[in-house]
Design a binder for these strands. Structure first.
Lengths: 348, 348
DNA sequence: TTTTTTAATGTGTTCGAGCACATTTTTATT
DNA sequence: AATAAAAATGTGCTCGAACACATTAAAAAA
């Protein structure tokens, strides 16, 4: 029993030439019923899988992958994504992989659409994107499907049935993770605040998912928790910092603050002055959050690992193109709980 | 400016044949000084990297990787490793990769040595092992080095300078992670117990590393914590469960219990009866631990992700053999903090 | 039956690296 | 200068899949 049969092997076993075997496998026609049967008989017995390396060599094609992602200058959360891209480019530079970045402003749908148009015009083999803007992302997905371009998303979700690859975190569940942490720290009774802090509110569905999960936990456990929700957004002309301070002045008697965005540091900056006993749980290992984590002004951070998301998305697409590995339709990544002691290992 | 040059390209640029280029690259001699210079001049300009796919196809070699790991029947902690092996076998079945398992009893050095001898006798290209027994593992490493076999370790460490690949967790730091969690849950003053629970104590250095990290945290922060260390091991003829119960009867006034092994469930089983207010932090997502985690009898678990360790070790070795990717000498994996809400994502 | 058309099958080349072998050039020897 | 020996260089094949093209066999038309 051989392990890996080649086309030549099959040809010999079936008593035909490799050309005929090839035609049978690829259903290119021009095969007599007799030969077809002979080859299929062999194929049934041995389960042939073409050698992906030979296939790849013969192909010798350059695959273009476009990636639509927000500008890291506007929000450092996205910085690790760029590292992941660089890493993948290095690892796969000799495998004929080209990655084309389409950077957009995270607050501008126009910028997103423009970047998308630019990138799709070059007819890439796949488009990987952060679907920050629901309607616009849906449109991009549809255009890709129409053009036969593989389409993948990460970090956020849209409900498009033709997405080929979807990588992200279970946001509802991550809200529950935060809730459980508060529950452990504060016991069976407390007052909490959910804070949606961001400079803009387009497509804020991810924040709401986290809030839903957060509330769901306490409801399900029937705990005596009071939970207030606050939307805090940058007001024009007033510094964001000032807005935060005003907010903190306006509330009291809060045991814990759950920040659904990566902006927990804005809060932590002033927490000692106004609510010294309140615990903060936030998201994402951005530098400023880590600073306050280390100062114990942030209790926990939840890590969404954007770098891993990009890395996995890209390698999944690449291995699909190069080696015919199937695309994982949907991949839900772990919800990493971060404290002062374990954050360094997540940063590399 | 071309991206990927081939040997043929270089030959044309240097005005020689591809055979000569090949001899220069592989330093096989038989090249005139003049030709050498011509080729090197081109090589300096373009930075040639051979196409790993073509190389791999030509090679057409079957690589044998041996993996020495404990029997999962004796300790379910190792079960995910077997899943990782199966997964890698499937993913790389058409890349000429053979994985040979050498299973040993986790309490028997003899069994380890026997499995190692058996596996090395077949002259694999690499040996990946869990170096549970220091002296014996060191010996295996030396034998591999002598035989030109690549040697990799995971889960535990030995100090052998010739290890080619080392994957695991920072155990000292994971002790600190546990300490920090207790600190957050219990405040600035408490009494804790460190429990080394296992059925045998050979090579228990990993437990001690965790203990050191744990104590280090409180010492560094100068917190008023009392920490007592207990070794609990299976006594012959007495059921382990009974030993645990006796231990619990013997202590009181403990706010938290830190179990340095995967045996936290043995404790959790009886905690409600003897120390209902004590918090347990343990290691590893074995089924029984998860059960008590869900019942809130275990507060947190630290995940050592043996599956990921094996997966990364194997793929790293494979990509080294197939595509000349360099081996990462030492890779320290994140210390995952697990509670009731986030464990499922770590299990897949 | 012979010729034409169409269907079926086989052969040869390519991808890039790597190595065996053949050929050519240079150097040494008579 | 002729020949032998050694050194240098070039050619051609392999790995396995894929496809273009050539060849052969069978069916249709004359």
């Amino acid at each position: 029993m051989k392990e890996n049969y080649t086309i030549k092997d099959i040809a010999e076993l079936a008593g035909v030439s490799k050309g005929t075997v090839d035609r049978v496998i690829h259903k290119r026609g021009k095969v007599s019923p007799k030969a077809l049967e002979q080859v299929n008989k062999v194929l049934d017995k041995i389960e042939y899988k073409p050698n992906p390396i030979a296939k790849s060599l013969k192909n010798n094609k350059i695959y273009n992958i476009a990636i639509l992602l927000p500008d890291a200058d506007a929000d450092p959360y996205w910085l690790p994504c760029y590292e992941a891209i660089k890493q993948v480019e290095q690892e796969f530079s000799h495998f004929g992989i080209k990655i084309n970045k389409g950077v957009f402003k995270p607050k501008s749908t126009k910028s997103f659409t423009k970047a998308a148009d630019l990138v799709i015009a070059e007819k890439p083999d796949a488009v990987l994107m952060v679907p920050l803007f629901y309607k616009e992302a849906e449109h991009v997905a549809k255009m890709c499907v129409a053009a036969g371009i593989k389409i993948a998303t990460f970090n956020n979700y849209i409900k498009e049935p033709h997405i080929n690859l979807e990588i992200g975190q279970d946001l509802f569940q991550s809200g529950r993770v935060a809730a459980k942490l508060f529950n452990m720290l504060l016991g069976n009774k407390a007052t909490l605040a959910v804070l949606h802090i961001d400079e803009a509110f387009q497509n804020a569905s991810h924040m709401q998912e986290k809030e839903r999960g957060f509330k769901d936990y306490f409801a399900q456990k029937e705990l005596a928790y009071t939970i207030n929700v606050h939307n805090i957004k940058k007001e024009s002309k007033i510094p964001f910092d000032q807005t935060i301070e005003n907010f903190l002045k306006s509330i009291d008697d809060v045991d814990g603050l759950f920040v659904t965005t990566s902006k927990a540091y804005l809060l932590a900056n002033h927490i000692a002055a106004y609510l010294p006993k309140s615990l903060i749980i936030g998201y994402d290992l951005v530098a400023e959050n880590i600073k306050y984590l280390e100062e114990d002004k942030i209790a926990f951070l939840i890590h969404q690992d954007p770098k891993k998301q990009v890395y996995l998305s890209l390698t999944n697409l690449i291995e699909f193109f190069l080696f015919d590995k199937p695309l994982q339709e949907s991949l839900t990544l772990p919800i990493d709980i971060i404290n002062t002691e374990n954050y360094p290992q997540y940063l590399n």
